[in-house]
Structures are given as C-alpha cells and as structure tokens.
C-alpha cells in the first residue's frame, strides 16, 4: 500500500494519491492534501466545493456531478476549474478524501 507523507503525517493512499481510509478525513487532511498537490491555500470557495462533495459522497456514496457542485456552491463552471487545476476528480474529490472515481479520470 503506498503511503504519502505530508508535514510529518503519514496517509495510506492508492496509487493515484486518493485517501485509502476516507473516514479519517477532516479539515486538516484536506488542507494538507491541497498543499501537497499544488492547489495551495484553501479559500472559502474551495471549502464550499470540498464540503459539498464530501457531504454528497457521504449521503450517496458517489461524487456529485459538476452541475450539482455549481448549483450548490453558486460558483460557475470555469471558476471550479480555476480553483482546482487538476479538475473536480483528481483535484477536488481527492482533497475531499473520496476514493478515486472510475472512468477516464
């Protein structure tokens, strides 16, 4: 099992760097992951996206459609891509502590 060390904390992750035990996720983990993957400091808008994705996953066991992210956060599509340069999946979902979605992502 690959591990990722950020600021002295060790996380079990999959090969793509997605958290293996999503239940250990918290704000601190999100902050560390964001710093590590180049997203940087998390702004209020970042948090709106992350919290919505997290909540959606906890309730529905899947990442939300990007449309829902826009609808619930009031952000425009292009803003989401600017906030998360790696995109909603490898960027936002990873920081929100979700397992990697299937498909071409």
């Amino acid at each position: 099992m690959p591990e990722k060390e950020i600021e002295g904390r060790i996380f079990e992750v999959d090969g793509d760097g997605f958290l293996q035990n999503p239940e250990i996720w918290n704000d601190e983990v999100a902050r560390l992951f964001a710093g590590e993957d180049g997203t940087g400091e998390l702004s209020e808008d970042h948090w709106k996206v992350i919290r919505f994705i997290r909540e959606h996953w906890e309730n529905n066991d899947m990442a939300p459609m990007v449309r829902k992210i826009c609808q619930h956060t009031g952000l425009r599509l292009r803003q989401i891509y600017e906030l998360f340069p790696m995109g909603p999946a490898r960027g936002a979902c990873k920081i929100a502590g979700l397992p990697k979605p299937d498909g071409c992502v």
Partner: peptide
C-alpha cells in the same frame, strides 16, 4: 459522450 463529460467536464 464520454461519461466524464457530463460528470466533470461538460464544456
């Protein structure tokens, strides 16, 4: 469509 279009990249 590639499902990643509606899911994450609809542009």
């Amino acid at each position: 469509l590639n499902p990643r279009e509606p899911k994450f990249f609809p542009l």
